[in-house]
Simulated assay, not measured.
Amino acid sequence: MGMSGVRSGVLSGVLGITLAIAWAGSVLSAQARDELVEKGSKLFRQCQSCHQVGPKARHAVGPYLNNIFGRRAGTLEGFRYSDAMEQAGQGGLVWDETALARFIGDPSGTVKGTRMKFRGLTAEPDQKALVAFIRQHSPGPSNIPETPPTAPVHASAGDPDLPEHILSIAGDPAYGEYLSSECVTCHQASGEDKGIPSITSWPARRFVAVMHAYRSKHRENPVMRSVAASLTDEEIASLAVYFETLE
């Protein structure tokens, strides 16, 4: 499995407003999906000593797990995999729900010779929950677009009003650039639209309003909710002023 800061060869993503999790032909309701992801987030605590996920994820004992879905095993740049994991990838192992659940259930049995010293989650419901949680950090083509590809994302009438002291936080554009690596895995820093609306040249206040709407769950996208929840007010402000300066 994989985890770090800057990604290459990552499956281009389309963020989803409902992000239904399909498993064995079934599609979960929004409530059931949220409950499954919540359970998975608790199970992930068993993984945190080796793996990271989220906007600030970096390689640790194990690789970071952002954008793992659709990636061939043992290929994430910047991490030194075991020979066994690299050979598994060369043999055709690509991480999807089924492959990841199988590996989570029996790491050493799935990839013989792996360095991962985790005994595995034998209960299928636990495997599904953990996979569902990790899936939130790997947006991809299976997700439903939040808006038509050419439509810009605006702070909407349903977004909560923010107090002036939040909107007026002075962000640091240099820090925003540092934080932006997670954003530009999906949103193009060049402003090019490849199925995900551009966020370059957005007015900073609009950016802040949208991110806080995701954080307060007034907007539905679970990936963006997770990203927004992981950022401080100052970090959101820094990202906002950084993207505002891009053309």
Rank of each mutant, 00 (worst) to 15 (best):
M1Y: 14
G2S: 15
G2T: 15
M3C: 11
S4E: 05
G5Q: 12
V6M: 08
V6P: 06
G9A: 04
G13F: 03
V14L: 07
V14Q: 01
I17Q: 09
T18L: 05
A20F: 06
A22I: 10
A24N: 14
G25L: 01
S29V: 01
S29R: 01
V37K: 01
K42A: 14
F44N: 11
R45T: 14
Q48N: 10
Q52A: 12
Q52N: 09
R58M: 12
R58L: 12
H59A: 11
H59Q: 04
A60V: 09
A60G: 13
N67A: 10
I68M: 08
F69P: 00
R72D: 06
R80K: 14
A84T: 00
A84P: 04
E86S: 04
Q87F: 13
Q87C: 03
G91V: 05
D96F: 08
E97A: 10
T98F: 06
T98V: 14
A99R: 02
A101M: 06
I104M: 02
I104N: 00
G105Y: 03
G105T: 01
P107H: 08
K112L: 12
G113A: 03
G120T: 10
D126W: 10
K128S: 04
A129E: 01
F133D: 08
I134F: 14
R135T: 08
H137M: 07
H137Q: 07
G140N: 10
G140M: 05
G140Y: 04
S142D: 13
I144Q: 14
E146F: 06
E146T: 08
P148S: 03
P149I: 02
P152F: 14
A155K: 15
S156D: 12
G158Y: 05
D161M: 11
P163Y: 09
H165S: 15
I166M: 14
A170C: 05
G171D: 13
D172M: 04
Y175H: 12
G176P: 00
E177V: 00
S180D: 06
V184P: 00
T185E: 07
E192M: 11
K194W: 12
I196C: 10
P197E: 11
I199D: 09
T200Y: 05
A204G: 04
A204K: 09
F207K: 13
Y214R: 04
R219D: 03
V227C: 06
L231K: 06
E235A: 07
S238N: 04
A240G: 10
Y242H: 15
F243V: 13
